[in-house]
């Protein structure tokens, strides 16, 4: 009863009200929809706090538990999280120390990882034909080459420009297909939740 019947009823009613708030231009439905979306936003904010607490709990346990690998990493994470939280609480997001952490630690680190990813992809593309030679591999390499050459503002021969436009057209068509698929999936998922078929809120 309290495990899934009442939550299902609440979910179905809330979903129908939000849907009606979008589809039916009735003020009460719009007001209800706005209220419900605001609740969701607040809950999401608290979810962020819960996530912060959860990660602290997990890594504190790892730090004080024996025979656990990479305890030092957990310790660094805990220290960083606490220090960042304290600094943001004290100085705000625009504080000097917070900006320093962002610009000197976070951004270079993540950019370096992304650069390594780019180099790895480059080498993988170079070794592609040594491990697999198939039409798909040829297509992948051709697309990569054209995208590399087409994203920089240099003068290309007309044929290359045409090829780049063809690749753009193909990319656009593919993305539209993906978007349609994603949209249909979202609609179906929403309907299943509204109808009570899927109950992610109660583990069902």
């Amino acid at each position: 009863m309290f495990r899934w019947v009442i939550p299902t009823i609440i979910a179905v009613v809330a979903g129908l009200l939000v849907l009606l708030g979008y589809l039916a231009p009735i003020p009460i439905f719009v007001s209800v929809r706005i209220v419900l979306v605001r609740w969701a936003t607040v809950l999401a904010a608290f979810a962020l706090v819960l996530a912060y607490g959860s990660i602290l709990k997990v890594h504190i346990a790892r730090v004080f538990r024996r025979r656990i690998r990479h305890r030092i990493a957990s310790l660094i994470l805990l220290v960083s999280a606490v220090i960042t939280l304290v600094l943001v609480l004290l100085q705000g997001p625009e504080g000097i120390w917070v900006q320093a952490i962002l610009s000197d630690i976070l951004i270079p680190g993540q950019s370096a990882v992304l650069a390594l990813t780019a180099v790895t992809l480059l080498l993988s593309g170079m070794r592609l034909f040594t491990t697999r030679r198939s039409p798909m591999a040829v297509l992948f390499l051709a697309t990569a080459l054209l995208m590399l050459l087409g994203t920089i503002p240099v003068v290309y021969p007309r044929t290359v420009e045409l090829i780049v436009q063809l690749v753009d057209a193909a990319a656009t068509g593919g993305m539209r297909g993906l978007l349609l698929g994603v949209s249909l999936g979202i609609v179906i998922t929403g309907l299943r939740i509204i109808l009570g078929i899927d109950r992610p809120y109660s583990g069902g």
Binding site: M126, F129, T130, T131, R133, L145, L148, L149, I152
Partner: peptide, 27 residues
């Protein structure tokens, strides 16, 4: 910077082509 980026793109494309040719030669 944009010119250097262009050179980098050309280098990456050249490496890809060389790698493909090397793979074909190995096979």
């Amino acid at each position: 910077v944009l010119d250097i980026l262009m050179l980098a793109h050309w280098l990456v494309a050249s490496f890809l082509v060389i790698g493909v040719l090397y793979g074909l030669a190995l096979q």
